[in-house]
Nucleic acid binder design. Structure first.
Lengths: 196, 196
DNA sequence: TGTACATCAGTGAACGCGCGTTCACTGATGTAC
DNA sequence: TGTACATCAGTGAACGCGCGTTCACTGATGTAC
């Protein structure tokens, strides 16, 4: 409504970024209009361009923010294997599957990101590596880069399992896949851990 | 342009279903408008409703058609392990990653399907089980149902790896994930095969 | 310290555009006689 | 066999609507004097 200091504007921008991240994950990027995104933050559509150059700019920013937050969340878990197991069990939980708006942006939006313009893919790539290297550091603290691709492959399984569990109309089978995926992820991370 | 026999109408419908399947996988469901879908089939938008009740009706039909075709393609591969390995190597190939329009609908559209209405999820579920049971039959011919969830979990890894490989801006890392996923899929299918 | 002014985040209407769907119409066909 | 007619797949314009983006305007603020 008015002009405040720089901190106020930055706080408003961050509010938009965070509520947009939630809506994108719930409804998809294409299904989230600028007017709805701004309404979520208690604003009207016109103010959008005082904060972002375009919708794609917000998409890239929100994606980076979500992945950074998730990497931080991961860093806050207990060190070593217990934290890793806690992460796997949360990621592949029924709760995470049923609340995409609070969950992993990759599980919610990965195929839409794959069809996006380069700037969005780059934001996603940078954020994902932050995230993956946090996992890699728990498995091979002295050389995280050596297990990066393996970690990403196990992560691909986890994300695919969540997507599949969300898309299947058969609830029992959907739950079974999550359980199977927990077992598989723990086994694969365990094997990586052993061979370091 | 005119009235032909019932076969003609069915052929036209099938032409729409197939070209729509390709466009959905390339551009996403939301980004594929009815007018563009009909133009792909050499028709104009108005004729659409002579063949389908709604766009969602076409989405469900195209999804079912794609998954059925993929299951048939799978059935045509050499029996047993060699065919399975061929499938894994095709699915996780650079060619499949770079040509989503010719590839697996799950890898291209899974998170969009997860946000769709029940009728679309049901079509996807039925088609996926057809597909998964074809894989399961190669691993446990006497009791395919016993390995269904495990097969779907390995499949989730494969589909997640393709999506991740499409979304990453780092080409080298994207390729590395595909290779890692081939190794992992073959190992996991091998383990399933051994324990039957 | 009090007043005049420049700033600019936010408003809300409007822009052209493409969406899914409807509809009056066309005209080649298969059918009835 | 030849002619009149009913059928209906396909046409293309139009419907209301929401999209991303632009823009003239507002008004509370921080700043200059």
């Amino acid at each position: 409504v008015a002009r405040y200091g720089k901190e106020q504007k930055h706080a408003t921008r961050q509010r938009i970024v965070e509520s947009a991240g939630r809506r994108f994950k719930r409804d998809g990027i294409d299904n989230s209009g600028v007017a709805a995104l701004m309404a979520d933050a208690g604003l009207t559509n016109g103010a959008f361009y005082a904060h972002f150059a375009s919708k794609d700019d917000l998409v890239a920013t929100a994606l980076a923010d979500q992945l950074r937050a998730q990497a931080e969340h991961l860093r806050a878990l207990p060190p070593g294997n217990p934290g890793l197991e806690q992460f796997v069990r949360w990621y592949l939980s029924v709760e995470h599957r049923d609340a995409p708006e609070d969950g992993c942006p990759s599980a919610a939006l990965l195929d839409e990101i794959g069809r996006s313009q380069p700037s969005i893919k780059e934001a996603f790539t940078d954020g994902s590596l932050l995230y993956a290297d946090e996992l890699a550091a728990r498995l091979a603290p002295e050389d995280p880069l050596s297990v990066r691709a393996q970690v990403l492959t196990v992560f691909a399984m986890m994300l695919g399992a969540v997507q599949l569990s969300r898309a299947l109309a058969d609830r029992r089978l959907a739950d079974e896949i999550l359980e199977e995926a927990i077992e598989s992820a723990l086994a694969q991370f365990g094997a990586l851990n052993q061979s370091r």
